[in-house]
Amino acid sequence: MNNQFKLDGITVPFSAGETIMDAALAAGIYIPHLCHNPEFKPHGSCRLCTVNANGRTVAACTTPASEGMEVENATHELTTQRRLLLKLLFVEGNHVCPACEKSGACQLQAVAYHCGMLAPEFVHFYPKRAVDASHPEMIIDFNRCILCELCVRASRDSDNKNVFSISGRGIQAHLAINSTSGKLADSSFTSSDKAARVCPVGAILPKHKGYNIPIGQRLYDQAPISQVGDVAKHQELADE
């Protein structure tokens, strides 16, 4: 067989056009990621899936696999770098896990556990973005948003509604609602939209459903994300 490459020494098959991430997921090998969801076009914003491919540092979600490629993923150096990226995400937002209803089933938190992050250690930004609670069924806490654009992609590519976008530059970049008032209630968003269940963190949440799963039984309470898989996959199942 021709189409194969090495991932941490393991032979991984791929078909033409597949990325390193696609092939790794198909082979059951975990590469940490936040903005990647196999249902949508790769985004490349979180940089968590950074791997070394033939000695170059690349995002596994956007880099096509190629014949004979040598890829390093689970190295000490890469885990340290990922921990640093996670710390940056934690200090940029208000990630008060003890008071977040997504705790225990949050991909940001789970990847941080997986990468061994004990504390964010940088100076906290403490952003002051107001919660949007205008919608009858859903709520958005913009201070937990990691700008993965999964809701943007889902609302554009799955629903053709284009409810969400990212607005602003640099550290001012933030999730925005495409309605005349800027409020979620004035958009065509509904809780049955694909975009309502792709958020990997506690930014877009259903109302009146918090804390309904006992501690110990939440998604990542017993086993790490490398075994359990992504949040979006489980949110999809929970809704069915």
Binding site: V96, L118, A119, Y126
Partner: peptide
């Protein structure tokens, strides 16, 4: 040693920073 969420990132009391 920083013990607990509050010592680590301000924790729930830091919600007053809003």
């Amino acid at each position: 040693v920083a013990v607990g969420a509050c010592a680590i990132n301000g924790g729930v009391p830091a919600m007053r920073n809003q």
